[in-house]
């Protein structure tokens, strides 16, 4: 999906709405939602998925390395968790549910070992880099399947959810890194960081270097370019849009139904 931040923002492409949600100051209801999220984080968070769904989806996720993000993985997950094949009807979004489960649980997991208060005070941009790279690392086990996930995220039915999740991830990274400056650059950062993260994630799907050092370098360079963030987004937008189109076409020719 993340790559589709760019595509959605590109004038010739779909979805103006999700784009606004990312790049414009939020309505107050949204602000409240963000505050509440952080507030609850300080105490304890309610589990993001009901127990039944968690059980099936986490079992399904363990089949992704072999089956990919497919109905087969979902079915295996349901069977492992002691449910029926028809139980997969619990997930009208089909295999995208597994993708979404991964995105949400990994975003929330970031808070588990967030930088300590001292670090936070020291260096926000260093913290962002560490956190973003940590989040990228969480894709390691399924990185060879991640292009399937990206393609699912880009389908019109799932794009709004995907973009929203990307925005939440961006918020989370900024918050955990200690950027609590809501008034000034927060929302510019949010869109910019989302774009940077999304492109690094896509980069990683083709990175064969040890421990993904090339992805790390890529991420570092992009973040350093952060000053020129506005032109950068435009550039990434069209580049990513192209990648996205090519990616979907590529997968279609491989017989993945999108």
């Amino acid at each position: 999906m993340h790559i589709f931040l760019g595509s959605a923002c590109h004038p010739t492409m779909i979805a103006i709405k999700p784009c606004r949600a990312l790049l414009r100051p939020p309505s107050c209801s949204r602000l409240k939602a963000c505050r509440r999220l952080y507030h609850s984080y300080e105490h304890h968070r309610t589990p993001p998925f009901p127990p039944t769904e968690s059980r099936i989806l986490s079992a399904a996720l363990s089949h992704v390395p072999t089956h990919g993000f497919t109905t087969a993985a979902l079915t295996q997950g349901a069977r492992d968790a002691g449910y029926l094949d028809v139980s997969t009807n619990l997930f009208p979004a089909g295999p995208f549910s597994i993708v979404n489960y991964h995105l949400v649980t990994q975003r929330l997991a970031l808070a588990n070992d967030a930088p300590s208060t001292d670090d936070v005070l020291n260096n926000v941009s260093q913290n962002i880099k560490i956190l973003a790279f940590r989040r990228l690392h969480a894709n390691k086990a399924i990185i060879h399947r991640w292009q399937e996930a990206l393609a699912l995220m880009a389908t019109p039915a799932h794009l709004p959810t995907s973009l929203r999740e990307l925005a939440l991830l961006s918020d989370e990274l900024l918050f955990l890194a200690g950027s609590t400056d809501v008034t000034s650059s927060w929302y510019t950062n949010r869109g910019g960081l989302a774009a940077i993260y999304a492109s690094a994630e896509l980069f990683m799907t083709t990175d064969r270097s040890k421990d993904y050092v090339e992805t790390e370098d890529f991420l570092t360079r992009r973040l350093e370019e952060g000053e020129e963030i506005k032109t950068f987004i435009g550039g990434v937008g069209s580049w990513v849009g192209m990648q996205a189109g090519a990616l979907i076409d590529g997968l279609r020719t491989k017989g993945v139904w999108i």
Binding site: H67, T75, V86, N89
Partner: peptide, 11 residues
């Protein structure tokens, strides 16, 4: 999607 789903049963 009625019916038992085909999965690679070797898992």
């Amino acid at each position: 999607n009625p019916g038992l789903h085909p999965t690679t049963a070797t898992t």
